[in-house]
Nucleic acid binder design. Structure first.
Lengths: 114, 114
DNA sequence: GTCAAACTACGATGGTTCTCGTACAATCAA
DNA sequence: TTGATTGTACGAGAACCATCGTAGTTTGAC
């Protein structure tokens, strides 16, 4: 696998993550799409694989909101930027929250489809 | 007890409640304060008992956001407007979500205090 | 060295939100 | 009826947010 690049990105430390910011990050449909995909498809996904129905610069914006709120971590690998859910940090700070949001996502998707 | 007044307020039906709107409603510190208090002190609390550190009109605004997102229900009783958490609806739509948010609230409050 | 791929930075725009103050409406108690 | 309590409506301002396009950077492949 491509090694991480020397370029680095600011992430909040675990104890700096705030519930309000996480809830805000999760309250946008595009960002919920990303979080869902990361949860289902696994970690270390490049930004480009998500194919959000918005422009590239808007996509960049949403990933930044997710990172700065503490929901995901990002590292560069070559030209790509790989995204992972910060499951452990979120579970330690807000037990059960990520799981219930993901469940709620799926239920709502079913409900709106069926 | 004072009977409900004839004045009525619009509430979304259960199936109209959207996860994104609920998360957005919960992503504000003032509104989290309200939800926490409703969960701890019980239902049917008047708006005035919360004593949020904002003006009355801002308080009205926050209660409206909570109601329109489906997080609380409101009825008039005399001059007061009583607020209740829509626990059953939220639990049916988003199982575990309210509980994990409330737990996260408490943990974060402890963490920031201690 | 060149080129394409992946992502960023910047500036802009239109919409939403949080906040306020003032003036008003509904209810109840005296 | 008068006054006090509770909350609303409205208008406004400042801040924030989602979105875009264009121009640029970093990297790896050829």
């Amino acid at each position: 696998m491509t090694p991480p690049s020397s370029r680095s990105l600011d992430h909040p430390a675990r104890e700096q993550i705030r519930l309000e910011s996480v809830l805000h990050a999760l309250s946008d449909p595009m960002r919920l799409l990303v979080v869902r995909a990361l949860a289902e498809e696994g970690d270390e996904q490049a930004c480009s694989v998500f194919e959000l129905p918005v422009s590239k610069s808007t996509t960049t914006h949403h990933f930044r909101v997710l990172r700065e709120s503490g929901v995901i971590s990002q590292i560069y690998r070559g030209t790509a930027k790989m995204n992972s859910l910060r499951r452990d940090d979120l579970e330690a700070l807000f037990p059960g929250l990520l799981g219930s949001v993901l469940t709620a996502c799926s239920l709502q998707a079913e409900r709106l489809a069926g």
